[in-house]
Design a protein around this nucleic acid. Structure first.
Length: 473
RNA sequence: GCGCCCAUCGUCUAGCGGUCCAGGACGUCGCCCUUUCACGGCGAAAACACGGGUUCGAGUCCCGUUGGGCGCGCCA
């Protein structure tokens, strides 16, 4: 199994799983699936200050909701600290790393001076060739990599192509902090190696890191995984996705009523393409996904297109599945006090009955739910003078033909029938004349209007009917 | 400031030297369907950032300019 592809998704649990991370996970997942390999999940929690359990939970939950299953146990980087330290010391013993006693203050000054002088703010290597015997008292050293100072570090990236850095532009990075904990650079390299990762697919904000990590691989004489740095996702204004244009957690997308499959489809098309094809089933995605067709320019996130795509998925979904999805998503949707908090079997059945028409005019589960509001509205609706005045409008002539048929069909009195229709019009925010068309369609069996009989059924319930009749002249 | 990456319609993108007076999708606009709202159908406007090369021929290759982005921590 030496040839098995192993990818990994390695988020740091300092916040929620954002959309860019979700896409990175998706690409890793697709690539692994395509190759019949595995995607591992590693939580990069070496920053103890900022890592939280809540963030870890949110990440796992987000991935699960998106349908991206990782393989094997979740690996927590922090638990591997002793292994990282061991490697740092091994490097030290081999003369590939050294103790550096420069204080944080000293480093700040160094960087400030470099910037002022128009040079890159890099560590100047002042302890690189000094003997530890010169160490100042009371300063705990860090361990730095003795990186090559000449030549270049060349990365063959699957997405970015050949990228080269002059080694003089790369400084001696810290491997082990003065408190003995590993830095991210070291931990990533050691973990990816130990986990047998064959392909690293991550955001291109890591591109420069790749060069530095490459130097660690070389010092260790380890084989480099294949790298693929994918472009970042930007906000609508082209700038990096940040809080101000709602750098949203993946759970926010659930709360907005997007279907996981639709979001996956939208995300995979952000930066990757397969000719003109827009829609992919999960199977097709796995089948056709490749690194070769990942673009190199950043993509802007477009909610309108996501919404459109979600609408397609909604309409293509089976009614039963939508009811199930709605029931599952219900608690995540924003509250509405005119809606039940949970749906009982009867309400679900009602939803199912109304679904064919409902899903035609919704783009998200949220719209679907709001569109179904009439099913759960309190009965009877209040009738007012305004409704009565609408009744005087031009639509009446048409309705005059239809009402008797409805009355006949429902076994209602003419007056009750008219009240019901009037109520329906008001509730659907329609002029009375506009009711004629859906009503006719419903009566003739061409039910283009959603659940119109469902509405009538609700409105026409015995008790409501009685009260409605009381209100009629 | 230094390093690296990027650059086709408003947006996502196809395009891997000729088949591109540039194709698809979202959005926009118009028409049709429908006496509602949607859905659906048809159609339109809309792009190769700029300047130099290379070549018989460049959206496609090279260089530069401009404009974006990322990185430059004892954060990840």
């Amino acid at each position: 199994m030496a040839d098995q592809v192993i990818t990994r998704f390695a988020p740091s649990p300092t916040g929620f799983l954002h959309i860019g991370g979700a896409r990175t996970a998706l690409f890793n997942w697709l690539f692994a699936r395509h190759a019949g390999g595995k995607m591992l999940l590693r939580i990069e929690d070496t920053d103890r200050e900022r890592s939280t359990d809540a963030a870890i939970a949110a990440i796992l939950d987000g991935l699960t909701w998106l349908g991206l299953r990782w393989d094997g146990e979740v690996i927590h980087q922090f638990q591997r600290a002793s292994r990282h330290r061991e490697i740092a010391e091994q490097l030290l013993a081999a003369g590939k790393a050294y103790y550096c006693y420069a204080t944080p203050q000293e480093l700040d000054d160094m960087r400030a001076k470099a910037r002022a002088g128009g040079r890159a703010p890099r560590y100047d290597g002042r302890w690189r060739d000094r003997s530890p015997s010169e160490a100042p008292p009371g300063v705990k050293p860090v361990i730095r990599l003795k990186a090559p100072q000449t030549g270049e570090t060349v990365l063959d990236d699957q997405v970015q192509g050949r990228v080269a850095w002059a080694n003089e532009n790369l400084d001696d990075l810290v491997l082990l902090r003065s408190d003995g904990t590993p830095t991210y650079m070291l931990a990533v390299v050691v973990d990816d190696h130990d986990m047998g990762v064959t392909h690293i697919i991550r955001g291109d904000d890591h591109l420069t890191n790749a060069a530095r990590q490459m130097q660690i691989y070389q010092a260790l004489d380890w084989q480099m995984p294949i790298m693929a740095h994918i472009p970042l996702i930007h906000g609508a204004d082209g700038a990096k996705l940040s809080k101000r244009h709602g750098a949203l957690g993946i759970d926010a997308y659930r709360a907005m009523g997007y279907l996981p499959a639709a979001l996956r489809n939208y995300l995979v098309r952000l930066g990757w393409s397969h000719g003109d094809k827009e829609f992919f089933t999960t199977e097709a995605m796995i089948e056709t996904f490749d690194l070769a067709h990942v673009g190199r320019s950043p993509a802007r996130f477009d909610f309108l297109k996501l919404e459109n795509m979600n609408g397609h998925y909604l309409r293509a979904s089976r009614n039963e599945d939508l009811v199930a999805a709605l029931v599952e998503t219900w608690p995540h949707l924003p509250d509405r006090n005119d809606m039940p908090r949970t749906l009982d079997a009867r309400q679900q059945a009602k939803l199912l009955a109304a679904m064919p028409g409902l899903k035609e005019r919704a783009k998200t589960l949220l719209e679907l739910r709001d569109g179904a509001a009439f099913l759960f509205a309190a009965r009877p609706l209040a009738l007012d003078d305004h409704a009565a005045s609408i009744l005087e409008g031009g639509g009446r002539a048409h309705l005059a033909h239809l009402l008797p048929r409805l009355a006949d069909l429902r076994q209602w009195t003419p007056a009750a029938t008219e009240a019901v229709v009037r109520n329906y019009a008001e509730e659907m925010n329609l002029k009375l004349g506009q009711v004629a068309q859906p009503l006719r369609a419903a009566l003739t069996g061409r039910a283009t209007s959603p659940g119109i009989f469902e509405v009538f059924d609700v409105l026409g319930r015995e008790e409501s009917l009685g009260r409605l009749q009381d209100q009629l002249p």
